[in-house]
Structures are given as structure tokens and as C-alpha cells.
Design a protein around this nucleic acid. Sequence first.
DNA 1: ATATAAGCGAGACGGTACGTCTCGTCTTGTG
DNA 2: CACAAGACGAGACGTACCGTCTCGCTTATAT
Lengths: 196, 196, 196, 196
Amino acid sequence: MGIRGRPRSEASHHAVLDAAAKLLEQERCSYQDLTVERIAAEAGVGKQTIYRWWKNKAGVVLEALLTGRLKLDFEPVPNTGDLRADLMSWLDSEITRAGGEDTAVMARSLMAALVTGGEETRALLNGGIVWEGMAVAERLRAEQEAGGLREGVDPSMVAATIMDPFIIRLITVGSPDPEWMRAQLDMVLTGILPRD
Amino acid sequence: MGIRGRPRSEASHHAVLDAAAKLLEQERCSYQDLTVERIAAEAGVGKQTIYRWWKNKAGVVLEALLTGRLKLDFEPVPNTGDLRADLMSWLDSEITRAGGEDTAVMARSLMAALVTGGEETRALLNGGIVWEGMAVAERLRAEQEAGGLREGVDPSMVAATIMDPFIIRLITVGSPDPEWMRAQLDMVLTGILPRD
Amino acid sequence: MGIRGRPRSEASHHAVLDAAAKLLEQERCSYQDLTVERIAAEAGVGKQTIYRWWKNKAGVVLEALLTGRLKLDFEPVPNTGDLRADLMSWLDSEITRAGGEDTAVMARSLMAALVTGGEETRALLNGGIVWEGMAVAERLRAEQEAGGLREGVDPSMVAATIMDPFIIRLITVGSPDPEWMRAQLDMVLTGILPRD
Amino acid sequence: MGIRGRPRSEASHHAVLDAAAKLLEQERCSYQDLTVERIAAEAGVGKQTIYRWWKNKAGVVLEALLTGRLKLDFEPVPNTGDLRADLMSWLDSEITRAGGEDTAVMARSLMAALVTGGEETRALLNGGIVWEGMAVAERLRAEQEAGGLREGVDPSMVAATIMDPFIIRLITVGSPDPEWMRAQLDMVLTGILPRD
DNA sequence: ATATAAGCGAGACGGTACGTCTCGTCTTGTG
DNA sequence: CACAAGACGAGACGTACCGTCTCGCTTATAT
């Protein structure tokens, strides 16, 4: 005997995620201004259909993020062979783009979803913090394969070390100070302790 | 001619901040469960008195934080002369304490205040991210004076590099993985690039 | 295709009107002390449900009145065949009852609703002033059918002529002077101009 | 020994009453929109000065009325010798003027003051209902002296009998029906019972 | 003169109701 | 049975107004 009743509408499923992404991204509305009712209206979907499949707004937004409908939208890091220079130039250009506030708004929205959604919403992350697996980690993995990293260094950990302060500043201040970020990058690459 | 009208009641001012801190800290209630009405009631103050002096709940919480009524409450880092060992043992004990969820709840509350308060609320931070100026930075300044840091390294920047990933994990996952944190600390101290 | 969405809950509709009536009548609370929140609580209804269907408190009270849940609660006028005597005795007993303040409070509440509600609230009256269609008008209609009124006299108009000064005194002074009211009744019945 | 301290400022006293009258009359604001704060501001007076001398807003408005700063502003009734015709033409012209809503707004304001002010506010009336001692009563007194009224008829009572239904209609419906008012006037003058 | 006392304008205070908003659930008829 | 629509109970939000309190200042009488 098979399951009874009408199967879940995949059209509605996608429409909801797309609507959430569109509202956050195109309408530039913050996580707070994004209401479940607005998502439902934009998606042409009943509100109950959202609550049937997601725990709450945070769940929708997070699934939109994890399925790539929302991005923090960082460019790939160039690879000229010079890791330090590549990261420096990438940082500069990202700060310029992020200075347009859009990335900051998006970062705050994601943080809001994580912070206001319950434990189970955070569990969706599965331990992986989104922005850490992206552009910088990619470049570092390439460098590692080329043997350009110290023995035993984990590229994703380095990415976290560089990106987390960046994101924190994006969220709190709005646009990170380029000087500070470059100095931090330099410090992370070189190490804090004096060479013996 | 002097100022006119009844002066701002410093008693009420403090009562509000204390009430907000008490509710968040002692009653262990999350930022969302903390309502302006409850703060007012706890402080024995009219709601309008809060809105007269603060833009919103986030403003109150942030001022409570900046005036030291709320802390992320990290212990001082011990100073045995061995920076690496001191930070490692401090990290271990903080992770254990933070594993009790209280610190995570508080960190999420602060983040919620930052993220849901408007631009002007964030401006109160004045570019200083709270948890970065604390325990770790202190220990690093001591080390710097003892000449234990590489030339030109900024202790507060190092603190950010260590603390921000910690806070991010505290917020998103709940309790940071001790292994990961120790490896990250080690990496930051030593540097990413291979010694030439 | 029929109408969409959950239909209006008649249970809530009635519960609100009943609650308003009960609070005004049984709890003897004045129109000012009657709050929308209290009505909602008493009715076991969300505040928004009230504002969804009524413009304001005045609208609720007026509908309660027009649906008979609230009355100014005048006794029927006796009919012994002697109009003048019947009205006189009725007036006397009503003044005694109204002297208990309850009727005065209710009359003030209704007036407050009319006066503080907007134009559209008053429009609910549809030109009919509530207390004018009641006890006195009934008795006068009976008299008219028995041929006891002057040709062309409108019973409801007479009722207004007698009741409006009564209500005005009820509202402003509290309890109308029996002597005054009897003299006024006598005057209205007989006419002001001398017989030729 | 005389009294000590600064005497009551008559300037402020008048300024408050004038301000209340001006706001109600010139700014056409309803009793509800008239706040104590607005009166104080308009009068250039501290709020406490109002509460020092009046019980509440209703007290201020009522004193403004009783001191003639506010009027229901009825024209005098003409006296051509023909009482019926004089009252008829006066009624017609008053209805036309009152149709401009201004009189209705004012009447509602006074009623609101009476109904929302406490018992002691109503006591200020001293049993005299304001609109009843005015134009119509004057004309009737003149007629009485000329012997044009039935023996023993009290002009002020007749005025109440004519004016109260008028005021009630002004308050509730906005503009009384001229036909109705003329018929009522006629009825009151002639009497309800058939001539024997 | 100078102290004492009350009134004054300004405006913050505790309190409370307002009317709006959003959440997450419930209840229709339709496919 | 899931769906769109949309009303529902709940309750926080931020605003408005009430009537009181607290400043520094002014204007009197009483010493």
C-alpha cells in the first residue's frame, strides 16, 4: 500500500524558497522585514504550506541559503601563484563590493536567522559555517596542493580565521577597514610568534 | 538661565539597564523573550521612559553591555610566561564553561541586538567589538611588553583573530570543538606559511 | 467557485458583543473603564479579531445596543386607558429606578460611544435614536389606535419630545426632577399655546 | 496676616480658557483631539498650572463654556409678534447653519466633557443645561409677558422641550431634519391631545 | 533687606490604553 | 490529503495621553 493523499507540491516548495531569496536579495529587505506572510504572498502559496514543511521563517531562509538560492556572494579568489598577493587583492575588491551595504544586509539576515531560529534551525548548518567553505578556502586548497602551506594546516580553518573577523565586522560596523583586514591577513599568514 | 524642566532620572536610567541585564543574565531569558514591557516592569519604570531615551530594546541591551552590566563573562587568561600554554588552558576551560549554554545564549542575545537594532544602534559600538578587547587581548598585551610577540603585531587584532571564530561557533553550533580551537590557536600563533 | 478562506466566526462575533454588554451592565463599568483589551479577554478573543470587524470600541458598544444586548432598560408603560395617568405613573417609577445611577451610567456610556466614535459609528444608528422607539412610543401607538391622540400626531415624535429632555437630565444631572418631568409631560400633552 | 506666596496668575487663567476655546472653535478640533498638553502649549502655560486649578480637561472646557468663551452660538429668535412663525423661521435658519457641522462638533464636545468628566464636572452645570437658557427661552419669555402663552407655562421648560430633541439630533445624526423639527415645534405649541 | 512661601514654565516620570503587526494554528472550500 | 485563502488567539510593538513630580525661576508677603 502506498502513501495516501496528495503528494507534496514541489512547485510550491521551490516557489517559497525562491520568494524568500528574491525578497531578501532583490527587494533588499532585511530579515525582520521579511515576514512569513510576505513570502507566502510572493510565492503564491498558503501560509500553512510554509509551516507544514518548515519550522519557521529561519528554516526557510536557511534552506534558501543552503540550496544556493541565497549567497553571501563572494567572488572567487584569483590564483596567480602568489597566495599573499591574491588574497590581498581579493580582500580589497570584496571590501569595496561589501561596502555597498548589500552584503552586510545579507550577512545580518543570515545571522538573524541563526540567532532567532531555534536549536533545530542551527542544526541545519550541520557544523559547517557557510561563508567559511567558500572562495578563500578554495584558493587555500589549491595552494596546499601546490605545497605552499605549512605542513598540517587545514585550509578551511584558515578560511575561518580570515573570514570570521571579516563577517563580524561586516555585521557590526558595516564595512570592514581595508587596512585592518590586510594587516590581519598578513598576520595570519606569517604567524604571531617571532621567528626564532 | 539654566536648563528647564525635570532632569532625567538617573535612578530610572540605571534601573532600566540593570533590569535588562538581570533578565538576560539571571532569568536566562533570550533576547527574544526579553520584552520592553518586562524590562519596564522589572525596573519599575514606565514604558515611555525607555522609549524616551533609547531607540529600542537593542539600544538598551547594548548600553547594558557597554556599561559593563552584561558581560560575555570570560575569565582572565593566566600568565605563566608561556603564552601558548596559557591560551590553550584558558581556551579549554572557557569551552567547558561555555558548553553550559549560558555563554552561547548571551552571545546570541548580543548578536540579536546588533542585528535587529538599526544602524544607529550598531553605531554605539563605535567600531569596537566587545569581546575582542577582553581577556585574550589583555594577556597578549602583557606578552607584547615582555617582548614575546613578533614585531608590529597588534594584540587586539590577534584577539579578534582568535575570538571571532570562537564566538561564531558559540553562536551557531553552541559549543566550539576544543580540538578545532586548539589547532586554530596553534595555527594563528605559528603562522600559515611555511618557514623559509 | 465559492468564497475562500476561513469564514468569520459567529461564536467570536457574539462573544465580543456579549462581553461588552456584560462588562457595561453587570460589572457596572463605565464606557471609559471598558477597554478593548478587557472585552477581548472577557470574550476569549484576540484583540485583532475585534479590530478586524469593528472600527473601535464605540462600534462594538453600539452594535451591542442595536442588537438588544444592551438596553436603557425602561419598563413598558402601563395602559389603563388613561394616557396621562399612565405616563405620569411610569415617569415616576422610572425616575425612581433611574435614580439608582445605573441607568444614568448606561445612558452616559451610550452617549460617550456616540460622541467619541467617528461619523461612521454614528451612521450605525441610521437616524433612529434608540431610546425614542421604546416604551413611551409603544404606549402612544396604542393610544393613537384608540383614537386618543390629536389628528396627525406622530407617536415616535412625541416619544422623542418626552424622552430627550429626560435623557439629557439623566446624563447631565443624574436624576431628573420628578416635578419637572411631570410638568413637562403635562405641557407636552396639553400644548403650549392657550386654547382659543 | 495675609496670604504668603505668589498669587494665582490671572493671565494664565485666562490664557488657558482662551486657548481651549480657540482650539475647539477655530481649529475645529474635537474634544478628543483637544489634549491638556495642547491647551497648555497653546496657552504658553505649564501643564501643572492647568491641573492646579482645574480637575481635568472637562473642567477647563466647561468653564470656557460657562464664561462665554465657547458658545453653541445660536442666533436670537426674531420677534415679529407671531411666535409660531418666529420659531419656525429661526429653526430653519439654525438648521442651515448647524448643517455646517461646526455646531454639531461643538455640541458633541460639550457632551463629551459632561460624559467623560466626573460627577463634580457635571456639578459645574448647577442643574442648568446650557443650551436651554438661550435664544428660544428668551423669545418665549417675551411671548409670556405679552400674554401669548397658556397659563402657568414655564418658558425654560418649553425651551428644553424644543431644544433637547434638536441637540440630540445634532449630536447623533449631525443635522436635524427640518421637516421633523418643524412638525415637532408645531406639535409642542399645539399639544398632543385632541381639543375637546 | 532678606527670608519664606507659593505659583510659574518646562518637561520627565509611572502608568495604561490604543491600534497595528506578526506569529503559528485552525477552518473553510477546491483539486 | 495537500492546497490557497484567510480568520483566529496570542501577545509585543511603539505612540499617545493622563495626571503627578521635580527642576530653576519669579513674585509676592512677612519679618
